[in-house]
Design a protein around this nucleic acid. Structure first.
Lengths: 206, 206
DNA sequence: ACATTTTTTAACCAGTTGGTTAAATATTTT
DNA sequence: AAAATATTTAACCAACTGGTTAAAAAATGT
C-alpha cells in the first residue's frame, strides 16, 4: 500500500469519492474523467490504473448511490411496525437522507430516464424491496375503519413524492416562493413534520 | 419559402421540433447536433444555417418548454376562484400536462441543477407567477375554519409534488410496484382523482 | 428566363474526450 | 539492498463534437 494504513485515505478510495461527487452532480454525460482525476488530486493515467474505464467507474459509483437508499426503503416496506409508526419512521429517515444527499434523487431520475437499459440491467440490484406487506397493511387498516379508504399504491407513491420532490425541485421552489438561502433551508427542514401531518390528516377516517 | 406554405412543415420548424425532442430527452450535455439533424431529416450544415449554435438552439427550445408550463401555474396562482375549485382545476390541468409531456419536469429539474446560472439568467422568464394570492386565500380559509390549519407554502409544494413526481419517477415506480406498461399507464391516469381526494381529505377541518 | 433562396455535399478544422503507452521516479514491502 | 508496487510525466491516438466553408444543385420567386 502506498498511502496511509487508513483505507479511507487510499488512492483508490480518493478516486472513488471524487468520481462519486462528479457523477452525482453531472451524470454520465456531463462527467469528465479529467475533472475526476483533478478532484482526486491525481492524474488521469492513475484513474485507468485502478478503474479500467469510465463505464466501470460509473457503474461502481451508481451502484453505491442506489445501494444507500435501498435498505431504507426495504426497512420501511418489509418490517411490521404499526402503520402510523412506520409512516413516521419512513418520512423521518427519508427526508433526512435526501436532505443530506439532495443529489441522489436527481441523479437516479435523470440517469434512469436517459439510459434506462443500463440502469435496470447493470445498476439496480436484482432484489428490490417488495411493497406487498405495506400494501396489505394499509388494506387491513382500511377494513378496520382506522384510516380513510385510499388506494394503497397511491398512498405509497404520495408519501415518496412528498418526501423527495421538494428537494429535487429546490431551485425552482426557491425562486417561486421568493426565498433566500437561509429561508429555503429552514423550509426544507420543516418538511419532516409537515409531510407527516399532511399524510396523517389525509388518512383520518370520516 | 422552400417547402409547403404550412409553417408547421417549414424546415426551421422541423429542426426546432427535432431539437425539442432531443434536448428534452437528453439535456444539453447528452444532445448531439448530428442527431438533431438526422431526426429533422436534414444535414448538419443546415442546422447552423437556421440556428447559429447549439447554445442558441438550446435556449430557444428550453424557453419554449418552460413557456408552456408557466401560464398554467400562473392561472392557478393568480386567479380568484374558490379554493377547492382552484385546487381541482390545478391538479386536473397539471396532471394532464405532465401526462402528455412527461419529460418536461425531468428536463427542468436536471438542467436547472446542472447549469443553474444559465437557466435562471437566460431561460426562465423574468416575470414568474407570484404565489401571494393563493397563500392568502389559504390563510383566509383557515381563519374561517373551513380547512385544517396548514402552512400555505407547504400545501402548495405538496400539491405540486403529488402532481409531478410520480411521472418523473415512473420507471422506478413501475419496477417497485411490479407493473407492466399498461398497468403503469392506468395507474398514472388514476392520479388526477387520487391526488385531488388525497389533498382535499388532508384539508378537512377537525 | 433570371435572380434569389434553400438545401445538399463533402471536405475540413480545432478542441475535447476517453484511453494507452513507456519510461522515470517514488514508495512500500520483503 | 533488492523487489514489488504505486505514482508521475508526458507524449500520443482515435473518435467524436461543434462549427465552418465553398461550391454545386434544387427549389422558389419574379
Amino acid at each position: 500500500m502506498a498511502e496511509a494504513n487508513n483505507p479511507n485515505d487510499s488512492t483508490e478510495q480518493k478516486i472513488f469519492d471524487a468520481a462519486h461527487e462528479v457523477f452525482m452532480q453531472k451524470g454520465m454525460d456531463g462527467a469528465k474523467m479529467q475533472e475526476i482525476a483533478d478532484r482526486a488530486g491525481i492524474n488521469k493515467a492513475l484513474l485507468h490504473y485502478y478503474y479500467r474505464s469510465k463505464e466501470k467507474l460509473y457503474e461502481m459509483v451508481a451502484r453505491a448511490i442506489i445501494g444507500r437508499a435501498v435498505p431504507i426503503i426495504r426497512e420501511f416496506l418489509e418490517t411490521d411496525y404499526p402503520l402510523e409508526e412506520k409512516i413516521k419512521r419512513f418520512i423521518s429517515f427519508y427526508v433526512e437522507l435526501i436532505a443530506r444527499n439532495p443529489f441522489i434523487p436527481i441523479f437516479v431520475i435523470s440517469e434512469m430516464n436517459k439510459h434506462p437499459d443500463r440502469f435496470i440491467d447493470t445498476i439496480l440490484p436484482k432484489e428490490l424491496p417488495k411493497p406487498d406487506i405495506f400494501l396489505r397493511q394499509v388494506e387491513a387498516e382500511i377494513a378496520a375503519g382506522r384510516i380513510r379508504p385510499v388506494k394503497p399504491q397511491h398512498l405509497l407513491v404520495n408519501m415518496v413524492s412528498l418526501c423527495i420532490f421538494p428537494f429535487v425541485a429546490k431551485p425552482m421552489v426557491r425562486i417561486v416562493l421568493g426565498m433566500n438561502a437561509q429561508e429555503i433551508k429552514s423550509f426544507l427542514d420543516e418538511r419532516k413534520e409537515e409531510v407527516l401531518q399532511f399524510v396523517m390528516a389525509s388518512l383520518r377516517p370520516n
